[in-house]
Design a protein around this nucleic acid. Sequence first.
DNA 1: GAATGTGAAGGTTTTCACAGCA
DNA 2: TGCTGTGAAAACCTTCACATTC
Lengths: 220, 220
Amino acid sequence: MSSEQPAKKRISESTIHRLSMYYRTLSLLQKEGYETVSSKELANREKLTPAQVRKDLSFFGSFGTRGLGYDVNELKAKIGEILGIDRQWKLAIIGIGNIGSALVNYKEFSRQGFSIVKLFDNDQRKIGSNHKGIIVSDIKNLDKEIAEDGIEMVIITVPATVAQYMVDDVVRAGVKAILNFAPINLKVPPNVYLRNENMSMELEYLSFAIVNNHTPKNSK
Amino acid sequence: MSSEQPAKKRISESTIHRLSMYYRTLSLLQKEGYETVSSKELANREKLTPAQVRKDLSFFGSFGTRGLGYDVNELKAKIGEILGIDRQWKLAIIGIGNIGSALVNYKEFSRQGFSIVKLFDNDQRKIGSNHKGIIVSDIKNLDKEIAEDGIEMVIITVPATVAQYMVDDVVRAGVKAILNFAPINLKVPPNVYLRNENMSMELEYLSFAIVNNHTPKNSK
DNA sequence: GAATGTGAAGGTTTTCACAGCA
DNA sequence: TGCTGTGAAAACCTTCACATTC
């Protein structure tokens, strides 16, 4: 019984983001009929260096063929597996306001295996209404319904003032990851992943860049 | 005629993002009635280290008082100036679909001085309709209207297939920065800033984190 | 010959630790 | 005494360069 713990190097967030980019580009290459792609070609499309591409992939294994490059289908499948999007994730959206309802219809989500199965709101006028075949539930039943459906991720699009209550509820119901659009620093226990989406921040970066003539290194 | 070029250190993107975070937290501290804040308190609220806060600020000057901390109003004003949000920015949204129309109503934008003044679409059913007091214009007049209004930033929320055409148009009209929601790698000339907002990428990160038990270092 | 995979080098960002000032 | 501002050290990430393989 050997215990070869492979010492699992910490993967940087940038590497993970780039994997997402590679994945999207590989889908495109598939459509364009490519069977094989080199790190150079992949890098060009993302404005990265070939070495960066190879290094990123090397953290997870050796997927290429020397002298040839990477098999497009194979690499895409492999990255999908690494990212955990070789399966369906069930999500709920909490807060069916402007952004919440826009996200119900956001096609990129379903395309990557993120399937929105429940919607919640506290507004009586919204509860019971139908969005893309999903009936909006009363937020009162949040934890019960989340737990019943085995939902593992939620998207929070409620006002900042109530966001923390929603988080506490869904955490209790067993949610493992939260994408938060409310402009507030939420608290989650250490076993729950939280990501904040802040669109003003992106505009603020642009504003800074214009005003300061910023020369970005490797901008998003 | 001295030529003291201050060698202007390149500021990292992370520093700029953190400035945005400080700015938001300082607004909150104002509301909570704080007059003064230490790097420690500021750091706690963002889950950062005090040294990080101080270092970030030090790139731009010395804004604090030893033994005391920072004056909340003063620091907020200073960061606003650095970020270039001590003024109004006129924006246009191109593509009034789900996301575009959600963003028209997004309050965080106006709160930070980003004022949406024009909307564009190519759909005859949408052109002429009213969103928050703004009449949707025909995309045919894009460059003319953008130039006339002196719009410097645009948000692109059209399908990936047409996004590049929109970009080419607005660049010709003199736009300096673009926030892109279309899932495609756009080309812009070097004097135009481009930022991509990709919400699936955030979910993919969460998916990766769950599947791989990722321990993030300094997650968004 | 062509392109991967990877240690080592180089660069950047964060953290430490302490001098300096209110 | 308390907290900033900042060089220097440590950690981290990217790029180089080349041995290796097809």
